[in-house]
Amino acid sequence: MITFTVEDHDGNRQEREAPDDMGLSLMEILKAYEYPVLATCGGMALCATCHVEILEGKDELGHATDVELDQLESLPEYYPTSRLACQIRIGEILEGAVVKLRGEDVV
């Protein structure tokens, strides 16, 4: 298990746990915790609806791929801390990170 912190759209922070040996993505974990993440494309880095900011611990996660950057680029707003949650595998690298939800809110 690894532990990281999620900040929702209202700014509330909660510590969350996730198994690091099941090949899950951060997007899947956020959905499992019932955060309002649309993930329209199901995790193929094709829709940018799982946009998050990594407020702490971004360097540990490595670089975004070109496909991911293309999607981020298409958003009206993105930040140096932006990533797509579907492209982040749950693992030791995420231990202690702080993730802020940025994807469009579900109605």
Binding site: L38, T40, C47, A48, T49, S74, L75, P76, E104, V107
Partner: peptide, 14 residues
């Protein structure tokens, strides 16, 4: 003309 892609919304069906 802002061109920042498309995103799904439930819309008036709601």
């Amino acid at each position: 003309i802002p061109l920042f892609g498309l995103s799904p919304k439930l819309g008036p069906i709601a």
